[in-house]
Design a protein around this nucleic acid. Structure first.
Lengths: 333, 333
DNA sequence: GGAAAACCCGCAAACGTTTGCGGAGGTTTT
DNA sequence: AAAACCTCCGCAAACGTTTGCGGGTTTTCC
């Protein structure tokens, strides 16, 4: 037994399918009397509209796709929430797809979205994606695409990203303001643009404050496994370090572990500040002060950009981070 | 300029649309010669199939929906990964939707999935959902539904869940095996079935081991905010407690914080064991031994159940947890 | 009372794809 | 040489919905 169609309702009521269709969409040409009858019989036969047929005929879609490399535990949940909330305001649904960080799968999904005639795609690039040529090749501008979070330089698509440089700047600024002058900063993979942006911002602040001493050690960690030993070496030979800055959650967790193992008291013996997606700082003890980047806002802004900017002038929007003062940084005199 | 259709290719080649369609799907009735010409002109005009039209005509879908209450940082990423991987094996895509823990939105999404003619729905119930009547009311058995993770008792749908009772049992068993006899166990909201299952399992193990002393304190936390004070009271008045068991990540984090604040050394002064989704134990110091429940496996099993069991005999499958021995439990003599 | 509105509904084509059937042309079989 | 067969393709209907147009019936207005 297959689903009831408009034709079934029409037959049952002895009217034409057009009348049913119009009645269901509350068209003024149809009498209230008839509309009521249609509603009743639709209920009775448990009619549900066929969106494939409807979409085909009307050539419109009300679903936007969100393609992400993987659903990690930090940034993505918030981002998805933001996208959902904002899409809902426009009566749109969101379908999420996962590229598993594979360029090949990213292509497949893009093609799929086009074939499904979604009204737009929010794309968070996979790590394998090094340029954007595949997007045009697949979509041929037939479907709007907005890049978010993980992006590449482009003049063809709007991008929504985090204000990484400012976040780095504010981190250094905050530590300076708290009186710290002997600082260890830890950065991640130097191949990633976020690493360099955050580092540039951090260093720019250091230069701005002339009363900042030269006593600033910077660490670049390519492989997280090497953090432990490198960090321990530095800490033991630089007893005067009063604060550590970590540019990411991953570095934060590992740094925190080492500090605990070395029996440092935070923040009494050493202060700790990070840039974070928002959860890890609450798990650790004590809770870690951090510059929070809001996936939520990125999601909201991205949906708006997708829906509103139908021109060929892409915007490049950066979402600011926000300082959360918790318990891991103390005033230093 | 809209997308090229089969008709456009047909016109360009001076053949009929049927030929194009068959050529594209590699039908044996079409000569290799013609197929090649079609491929070329399809490339040239950048043809992409219209899945709405195709699905409408063929009345088949290759996309399964996954409805989840929210994308949290623990269980869901793994689950989504499992679902994706298993669906891909059958050439299916996965669309993820978020109900925001709202029953109303859950209904809307179910309706939407039906209207989109998806080939099936994996449903993780929202917290607001107290019975399953809405599912039948909406889908009318026109679309297979499998419940996973957050489920309710039912004879109408297959369910895939975690072996909660066994997890509780194994936790107690493990602590006993490690020589602990004075144990504090902490459970969450007693309204949730997982709470009671885990608790039942835990207590069952306690009874099995006759050499377990009566010195076992159990705590039920309805509001996480009250954990701190209650726990502190118990710990200060029961100095001989050698191990704490937490039934969830949330309880674990809060318990761990209090222990740190009270300057307990883990595991030297007190052992800590939990049931976990897999991330928190690695963030905390030291890493926490835990019974891990695999969202991944739940996802894999759920897809298989959805695709294979098209009968009216629902299965109720429970996925076992697995012990991860880390650094938070020591032998106690 | 006649004309013009207003109201209500049906006809039929269209969205893009798929597919059963049939048939023209050529090759092989009897 | 007729029959049987194979190859390759077109015709047309169908999936379920929407919508421009047109027309019949009732109401309104001067």
């Amino acid at each position: 037994m297959s689903r009831a169609t408009i034709k079934d309702l029409a037959k049952k009521l002895g009217v034409s399918p057009s009348t049913i269709s119009r009645a269901l969409s509350d068209h003024p040409d149809i009498s209230e009397n008839m509309k009521e009858k249609v509603r009743l019989v639709a209920e009775e036969l448990n009619y549900t509209k066929n969106r494939r047929a409807s979409g085909l005929r009307k050539n419109e879609s009300n679903i936007i796709a969100l393609i992400i490399p993987e659903i990690n535990m930090f940034f993505m949940p918030e981002l998805i929430y933001g996208v959902n909330l904002e899409a809902e305001k426009s009566g749109l649904s969101v379908a999420i797809f996962q590229s598993d960080n594979s360029l090949e799968k990213e292509k497949e999904l893009l093609k799929y979205c086009l074939e499904m005639s979604f009204c737009g795609v929010l794309l968070c690039l996979s790590v394998e994606t090094k340029n954007l040529s595949h997007i045009d090749k697949i979509t041929k501008k037939e479907m709007p695409v907005v890049l978010l979070d993980k992006v590449l330089n482009t003049q063809n698509y709007s991008t929504i990203t985090i204000e990484d440089e400012l976040a780095g700047y504010q981190a250094a600024e905050y530590l300076h303001q708290k009186g710290h002058s002997s600082i260890l900063s830890i950065f991640g993979n130097p191949d990633l643009s976020i690493t360099n942006l955050r580092k540039d911002g951090f260093n720019k602040a250091l230069q701005n404050y002339t009363d900042f001493p030269s006593k600033h050690i910077s660490l670049e960690i390519e492989n997280i496994l090497s953090l432990d030993s490198e960090l321990e070496t530095i800490l033991t030979s630089n007893k005067n370090i009063s604060a550590i800055f970590c540019m990411s959650d991953e570095l934060l967790v590992n740094t925190h572990h080492l500090l605990m193992r070395m029996e440092y008291k935070i923040p009494e013996q050493i202060s700790l500040l990070s840039i974070s997606d928002g959860f890890v700082p609450y798990y650790l003890y004590p809770n870690i002060s951090h510059l929070h980047h809001s996936g939520f806002e990125v999601g909201v802004v991205a949906v708006n950009e997708l829906l509103e900017n139908q021109t060929d002038n892409p915007n490049h929007i950066k979402v600011k981070t926000k300082l959360f003062e918790m318990e891991s940084v103390k005033e230093f005199y």
